[in-house]
Design a protein around this nucleic acid. Structure first.
Lengths: 212, 212
DNA sequence: TGTACATCAGTGAACGCGCGTTCACTGATGTAC
DNA sequence: TGTACATCAGTGAACGCGCGTTCACTGATGTAC
């Protein structure tokens, strides 16, 4: 890639990063302006048009990028789980929240825009979530816990429960950090880990006793 | 109430109704303007200030009103369920979706603003959801299916799963109506009712086999 | 009941501001010979 | 390698627009006597 192309890519990425940052600092994507983004990056407003036709197009690119990062991250998470299949539920939950803490903006953006954004945005996010559900369902079908589930529809439904609940878990978790600090935060987090563990155990109890 | 007070109340309610309508027609509360609301009602922009200090205050009032309506509606739903406790899961789900269809804007507003709104809005909605979770947990404790659950914490965790999943169900359901029409819509709805039924049965399978 | 004054929901003009978008430009980087 | 021209990311001025908010106002309704 030429020097010019490289610099252009950097600017483009800076615009995307700024948009993600501004969209997850107490406001939503649809309330931030083109000028705010360029201001954050240190470019003149008109430079925006060298990279995106308008804010909608930047939004599309952002969803794609965020989804891709989340999918990769969850893939790593699932591989970690499969290689220690018999670890405690709590440990798995802790790994999940550690992953959430590692890229909080990605989670916040996808979840806030899932129902909050425009119809287009929602459609694109729905598709990405469908991929996550399918990924997880595939993992399930390879796991010993699910050997007795014959219907692949049932597997997808179970996967869907977990994916949807995990969004609530992630956002509740991230909200704690904005409401509490220090020891109080740790206490709430600890307590929440236990609550989520109970939820997961309950689900797996249901799965263990499932017959189609 | 005097004639003047009555008319003032009507205008105030008209502003709230317009705000709810505009917030749920493809955009979110934070993207609609004071002027749009008064235009929708047929008032001059400055008249707004006779009723609310600013948009934030109107938002608070709207959350309160929407939450109250949803709580009443869910109360009716739960009473209906308790009086036909041994009806099929599918029938209960159908009643739920009928309720969603009866006040779609209330559901859309609360769910979209749950993670999409400002920090204040989110805090207020969290509290309202906590009330819903507690209501449902109380119902559980009176139900035969939950006699063996000793811990009230466990009851609340189970209730919390159901409340959180129900939000996803409601929004997914309402999204169908924007994407499909006629027979195709009915087919998707039918299919989704079955998927949700599977989810609920799975949860209750877990609950039935629960030991603390 | 009638009158004189007070209240106050709604009006309409005016303001300054940040917005998205246009346009002609600049000057560093790329390309052809 | 050196030169002459092309490309194009970023600039800066300018625009019209909808916004929230102020202010003095109007006229119907309420209240005191």
């Amino acid at each position: 890639m030429s020097i010019r192309d490289e610099r252009k890519q950097q600017s483009r990425q800076a615009l995307l990063d700024a948009a993600l940052k501004l969209s997850t600092s107490g406001r939503s994507f649809s309330t931030i302006s083109l000028r705010e983004i360029t201001r954050e990056v240190g470019l003149v407003p008109t430079a925006f048009y060298r990279h995106f036709e308008d804010m909608d197009k930047l939004g599309e690119a952002l969803i794609e990028q965020v989804s891709e990062r989340l999918r990769q991250m969850i893939l790593t998470l699932r591989q970690g789980y499969l290689s220690h299949e018999h670890s405690k539920t709590q440990t798995s939950i802790q790994f999940f929240f550690r992953a959430v803490d590692e890229s909080p903006q990605d989670w916040m953006f996808l979840i806030a825009e899932r129902w909050g954004g425009s119809t287009t945005v929602r459609g694109e996010i729905s598709q990405e979530i469908e991929l996550l559900v399918q990924d997880l369902a595939n993992d399930f079908s390879a796991s010993a816990d699910f050997k007795h589930i014959k219907s692949s529809d049932d597997l997808r439904v179970m996967s869907s429960i977990l994916v949807n609940l995990s969004f609530t878990w992630a956002m509740t978790w991230l909200d704690f950090a904005t409401q509490y600090t220090g020891g109080e935060l740790v206490d709430w987090q600890q307590q929440y880990i236990e609550q989520v563990s109970t939820q997961v155990r309950l689900l797996f109890r249901g799965i263990a006793n499932w017959q189609s």
